[in-house]
Design a protein around this nucleic acid. Structure first.
Lengths: 248, 248
DNA sequence: TATTATCGTGTAAAACTTACGCAAAGTAAA
DNA sequence: TTTACTTTGCGTAAGTTTTACACGATAATA
């Protein structure tokens, strides 16, 4: 098994190579279960996804998602948290299960069913915790031809994110705690791949009344600085609307 | 292994008891994978769910969802279709994966991770295909205290359905091919557990322009009969809107 | 033939969305 | 320090959608 030291040398993590996984899967009499994480970040006004170079020659060093087998005594959700922790060094990240992929031939090592999780992290935090130089952020628009069935997993998760962000206050996990409305709008425009009217966007968020004015201004911007806000998650948790309507 | 004959005697299906599953799980060196189906129907203006009496004494004959282990050479989705076919005799039913449940101790037989699927069937069709007299339709409002973690699986799927039906034309799978607007509204009211204005409901659906007027009337109703409609799935597939907005 | 329940249509007020104007605040360069 | 440039912050008018509510018509049944 590969033992890799983290970049800062403080933590050691044991991360499985494809060969290790293949051995484990082949020794299994049944179906192996894995977790794959689609980790999104937001940097330089672009939506990014964290990928790792596949260690399998057969897959010509294609990029793939971060994943691992689920331990026999490990909750499925915990396995996803563990992978995130091992790969990014981050605790408390936003993480949600999206879909489970179970086609018989989806994995070359044998029968592996995988549960895909979507994670949103603040790239500023992450930068302090780079643990593996085979990892790279990729612009989501340029992600093609991933290893295994990871392209289809990624596509599913990206569509999930696009829909989800319109209905839930997910996006704030991609931003610093304090952010300007411009940053927030850039985030939405990047994820939804669209342009919005600045004034209506602002009106919309103020009308929701979930933003806390920090009475601080942006710094180091080459133009008039905007106000900084925090999202009021507590208020949201209490007041979130139960929408009843039909729209398709 | 239990061999059960169908009610009409034409088909035989092999349906596993809990003991069988326990044996299979215990003989496995790893994680066992199962599928559980939450099968919804609509009858007498109430939303129903199809449950089976658990054969495990330990669970005091509580009701449980229909499930089975996934075969080593069986696609996950196909396993769900197989279970539906075995239990209801129906082919071509609406089926969608909802969530995978993987807590370590969720199943008493050992480590079993289960993928929950949601199915919507037309009860009229089903009635012709009763295969097992341990099966019963339950009013969703009165479903409590299911076996294993099935209550939580059911709750998740019911919430999923409530949300999903507002955004996608799912509900029509629960109705006959031809239906009146009143039936459609009753369906929505039952699923969402709410009351809607009859005139606005009608306006809403006509505005969508996905209903085909069959130029037929309801029969055997004790009042003025309403027109019958079909949902135009083809038109929907082409025209479905890509909504961009923020609302939470 | 009267009664009862539902069908089918319409309209006015309220709420929300969209499109766009403009003065003020700060940066950067002449 | 003045000017040009960019972005912030606020506001309004027009268009669209949602909501609340009324009434005559039609069929079953008593």
């Amino acid at each position: 098994m590969d033992i890799k030291l983290s970049a800062n040398g403080k933590k050691a993590s044991t991360i499985k190579t494809f060969q290790t996984i293949q051995t484990e899967v082949e020794s299994s009499t049944g179906i192996a279960l894995s977790v794959d994480c689609v980790i999104f970040g937001f940097d330089e006004n672009k939506l990014k996804v964290l990928l790792i170079r596949s260690d399998l020659k057969k897959f010509q060093s294609k990029w793939s998602l971060l994943g691992d087998l689920v331990g026999i005594k490990e909750d499925l959700d915990n396995a996803a948290y563990r992978i995130l922790k091992e790969r990014t060094g981050l605790n408390d990240v936003y993480l949600e299960q999206v879909h489970t992929f179970g086609a018989v031939n989806r994995h070359p090592a044998g029968r592996v069913v995988t549960a895909a999780y979507c994670s949103l992290i603040n790239v500023q935090h992450y930068k302090l915790n780079i643990l593996d130089n085979e990892l790279h952020w990729h612009d989501v628009q340029s992600v093609t031809d991933l290893a295994f069935d990871h392209q289809s997993i990624f596509d599913t998760c990206y569509k999930w994110l696009q829909k989800r962000i319109q209905e839930h206050p997910l996006g704030f996990n991609l931003l610093p705690k304090k952010f300007s409305l411009r940053e927030l709008q850039n985030l939405y425009e990047a994820i939804l791949n669209t342009k919005m009217d600045r004034r209506n966007f602002r009106k919309k968020f103020f009308a929701m009344d979930f933003l806390i004015d920090m009475n601080e201004m942006e710094k180091d911007v080459p133009h008039r600085p905007g106000k900084l806000y925090k999202f009021n998650f507590d208020k949201y948790a209490k007041k979130k609307k139960k929408w009843i309507g039909i729209d398709f």
